[in-house]
Design a binder for these strands. Structure first.
Length: 648
RNA sequence: GCCGAUGUAGCUCAGGGGUAGAGCGUUUCCUUGGUAAGGAAGAGGUCAUGGGUUCAAUUCCCAUCAUUGGCUCCA
């Protein structure tokens, strides 16, 4: 007798070993049709694998991560089977499921490439194979058998993988004529895979190692229904419309120039204005939190970076030194603001009573990022950090950390960034060789971060081996329109620079002590933040922030004078107003300005002229009726105030 | 940096061995209008750059630069 416990704690009893599929069938035929995988005592299994002992289980359908995972993982095998059929001699790497879909890494036969033009053929082959309704069959094999199989087949990558596995843990999965080394779990049958799309190809280093061979990675996505694929493609299309590069161009926020250089954004007037508004917003908050603004130059003597250690670590891969007529004198563009701020800290002695000292600067820095890594405004070579450095006593660390977290949540709140992950980056679990600073300090600061995160009740993940060499950090990760993660806000503890720059304060004991330094940037960088903001809002910025708040549309040229009067009045009320006095019909003007995402359109004609009113239309909403001029100004200013007020 | 793709007017894109096309935008004119596209005419391009093949290259080939999807990297 086998007892199976379901998630609702009900128990079903079976006379003999039973598979997940059979359990589902026992519950309902419909469930059996939809179920994709099963969790057995916290391990995800295939549906057809027999459960031999009492267990608690959960059945997974498409809506569960585990269900999708099995589906896409099985699809990856199908892709590999298709590729093997189409490219004889191909060697297989690995093929996992990912967040949206799956990929397979392959080493193509000499001289072969896969490009977009080949996708159709691959898709067709996959469909053909899926329709053969082959079962995915799980086989436990010995290491020797597995090695033998792949040595014969000539799949050197699989051989490498197997040789690192322990005997007794190796399983192969077979569907049709295809066998793959795999832990599983998989679908019962290829027939579930109904809709298939090969999405892209890319190069990927074997095992992520840049020194090893680059394989071809083929990405795809599959669904149990054709309609779901179509919906997914529409969703992708929608996401592309939110791309900050596209909207940034449309709204004239920023541009790039080949002549200026790659990765060096040029902020256009409207973008610069928007950015300035964000900066002022943060400055106000920082003032409240006891920050002092400082200003430092964009370059520093090479010796500065030798002292900080950055020259040694990044010097070769950076913008190279600037020489002067003075023999041997060299400057470097600053890749960060900290060394300058350390020197600012050192301009006078500090008492423990003065700490913490908080220096803030919107500091523009230059980093020679790999050319393949550049991406719109999110990854650039010249950018401005909303940087600040806090110099504090060790006992103040946790408190300061929490205060910075407050600032970040104020910012994220104000801009409706609620879908973020806090990532705590700690040292490698065992190997401490690459870190500087005492164990004691590391332990203290890692504990401080974890406590602070818990106290603030943040949704966080811990990543080991992600800390900087000089200290642990807390990053705020936000996704862009296509689901790619970007780091925005960051808080980092640093024991290194205070040491290297020999920073000190005098303690109550009249002895010299070393302060702890916190680097922090709530936005991260203005460039990246604006990019992510654009994708979140699709270019419809909140009223307080948006470049143009109001546009006046005269119904005909006869009312241009009145429109100008309205324009002047509103601009005098600090409402950013434009006029559209083109010789066009009002319907056309409405359409054009709606597309420009200007929040309020004011239509003025005879009626409005006679009564000193405006006819108000809200972007994306429609006609809001007629208002007196001062009434409208009031209305706008109140809305702006309400948006900003909470945070002052 | 590596693998794939792309580069034609301000923007979005079509085309193709005999030196260029559309829509939108812009300019001028007609029209003077009421809540998502009124009409007409004109201006605008070294077809990314440099080589090669060819009688002839924007088109084919190679390199470079830039953009782009990934990989590696990210102080």
């Amino acid at each position: 007798m086998i007892k199976i416990t379901l998630p609702d704690n009900s128990v079903r009893e079976f006379g003999e070993a039973i598979s997940g599929y059979e359990i589902a069938k026992d519950i309902s035929p419909r469930l059996a049709k939809e179920v994709l995988s099963i969790t057995v005592n916290d391990e995800v299994w295939d549906l057809q694998r027999k459960i031999e002992n009492d267990a608690s289980i959960k059945l997974h359908k498409w809506d569960d991560e585990e269900g999708k995972h099995a589906f896409w993982h099985s699809s990856a095998h199908l892709l590999a089977e298709a590729l093997e059929a189409l490219y004889p001699g191909i060697k297989l790497g690995i093929g996992p499921a990912i967040e949206y879909g799956f990929y397979y890494d392959v080493d193509l036969p000499e001289g072969k490439v896969i490009s977009d033009a080949d996708f159709k053929e691959i898709e067709t082959k996959m469909i053909e194979l899926a329709r053969q309704k082959n079962q995915y069959i799980r086989k436990e094999v010995s290491k020797e058998e597995a090695l033998d199989f792949y040595n014969k087949k000539g799949d050197e990558y699989k051989v490498e993988l197997i040789s690192e596995l322990e005997d007794g843990t190796i399983t192969l999965y077979e569907q049709g004529n295809f066998t793959d080394l795999c832990r599983g779990p998989h679908l019962p049958n290829t027939e579930n895979i109904k809709a298939i799309k090969v999405t892209s190809v890319a190069g990927a280093y074997w095992r992520g190692d840049e020194k090893r061979k680059q394989l071809t990675r083929v990405y795809g996505i599959t669904f149990p229904k054709q309609k779901m694929l179509e919906e997914y493609l529409v969703l992708l299309e929608e996401a592309r419309k939110r791309d900050h590069r596209k909207i940034g161009k449309e709204l004239e926020l920023f541009t790039f120039s080949q002549k200026v250089g790659q990765g060096l954004p040029l902020w256009l007037p409207k973008g610069a204005e928007l950015r300035e508004r964000l900066e002022n917003f943060l400055k106000k908050i920082q003032k409240k939190y006891g920050y002092q603004q400082v200003i430092a130059p964009h370059i520093g003597l090479k010796e500065l970076w030798v002292t900080s250690g950055h020259y040694e670590k990044y010097g070769k891969d950076s913008f190279q030194p600037i020489k002067t007529p003075n023999e041997g004198e060299e400057f470097l563009l600053k890749p960060m603001n900290c060394p300058h701020h350390c020197e600012i800290y050192k301009h006078k002695p500090h008492s423990y009573k003065d700490l913490p000292v908080r220096y803030a600067e919107f500091g523009t820095v230059y980093r020679y990022e790999q050319s393949g890594e550049l991406h719109g405004l999110t990854r650039v070579r010249g950018f401005t950090q909303d940087d600040a450095h806090i110099f504090c006593r060790p006992d103040q660390l946790k408190d300061e950390f929490k205060k910075v977290m407050d600032i970040i949540s104020i910012i994220f709140d104000a801009l409706d960034f609620n879908d973020f992950t806090a990532q705590v980056s700690l040292r490698h679990k065992t190997d401490y060789s690459k870190y500087i600073g005492s164990d004691e300090n590391w332990e203290k600061s890692e504990a401080a971060i974890l406590e602070a995160v818990k106290e603030k009740d943040l949704n966080y993940v811990i990543e080991y081996d992600e800390a900087a060499f000089y200290g642990p950090k807390l990053d705020f990760m936000v996704k862009d329109a296509l689901g790619r993660q970007w780091q925005l806000g960051t808080i980092q503890v640093d024991y290194n620079l205070p040491e290297r720059f020999e920073l000190e304060y005098t303690g109550a004991d009249n002895q010299k002590h070393r302060p702890v330094m916190i680097h922090r940037a709530p936005f991260g960088s203005m460039e990246r933040f604006v990019a992510v903001l654009i994708e979140h809002t699709a270019g419809k910025f909140p009223l307080w922030l948006t470049p143009d708040q109001v546009v006046v549309l005269p119904v005909s040229e006869k009312y241009n004078d009145y429109a100008k009067k309205v324009l002047n009045f509103l601009n005098n009320c600090d409402i950013r107003t434009l006029i559209d006095d083109r010789n066009e019909k009002v319907g056309k003007k409405i359409r054009d300005n709606e597309l420009k995402r200007i929040p309020y359109l004011l239509i003025v004609g005879e009626k409005e002229f006679d009564n000193e009113t405006v006819s108000v239309r809200q972007q994306g909403v429609g006609d809001k009726g007629i208002m007196k001029l001062d009434e409208f100004a009031d209305f706008i200013n109140k809305e702006v105030k309400a948006q900003v007020e909470n945070y002052k």
